[in-house]
Amino acid sequence: MPSNKLFQFKAKVIANKRVGKNYFHCIFSAHSLRQAVRPGQFVEIKVSAGPEPLLRRPFSIHRMKGANVEILYELVGKGTELLSQKGAGEYLDVIGPLGNGFTLPLTPYPLSLLVAGGMGVAPLVYLAEILKRSKILVLIGAQSKSGIICEKEFKDLGCSVKIATDDGSCGFRGKVTELLSNILVTMDCRPATIYACGPRPMLKAVAEIAQKENIPAQISLEEHMACGIGACLGCAVNTRAGYKRVCKDGPVFGAEEIIW
């Protein structure tokens, strides 16, 4: 694992806006993270000053622009609700950059395939930015059209984007992993690597498809965490090498490592 110095700092909120039905986009200043962040890494934010909620909340790094970090999040509970109420000029208590991040190619791949389920787009936009010298195909899945975000961001980075929705309200009707299977059958050029982030059942399906097609896949797991720095051993995931910590040994794993 590469050396990775951690920082704890007060980050000034620059913007924090609703970008979809239940999605928010937050930009904060983070001078100490400049140049230190790999795609797939995350930060932990304390959203309240007191003991409620007690723990920090983990958020993938969505983009880096100079010394500004961007995160994308969905309102799912008390923590994200409090975060959504932070306005420009307020401060967040942030720890990062955490986790291992995606393994990047030494020379650009001819083609990379990114697969996102819902909020799983969050770390993949930053990844696409770093990979952009290669051709990138992005598959985004959600239950319906309102759950699809970041299509424009990927396109602006020069990626091809295909959408899958369970209800067929946008793009392919069905699971993004069915779309993935279909595409791999018809594709002329095979992707060098599949990068995926999303709900666990989706990642499991991606792992199975990647294994069947014999394509290496890197998946980013999401897990509740207590510490985020590898100390509490709470976010355990069962792998072929025993339990590993999602926060420190991950969140990115080789798809073949995980015992689902």
């Binding site: 409620e52 723990l55 051993l233």
Partner: peptide, 18 residues
């Protein structure tokens, strides 16, 4: 260690079974 999930946040607390 034990099977996951191993921790859960509670009101002003943390429940664990590592």
């Amino acid at each position: 260690g034990n099977a996951a999930p191993r921790t859960c946040e509670t009101p002003a607390g943390l429940l664990n079974s590592i």
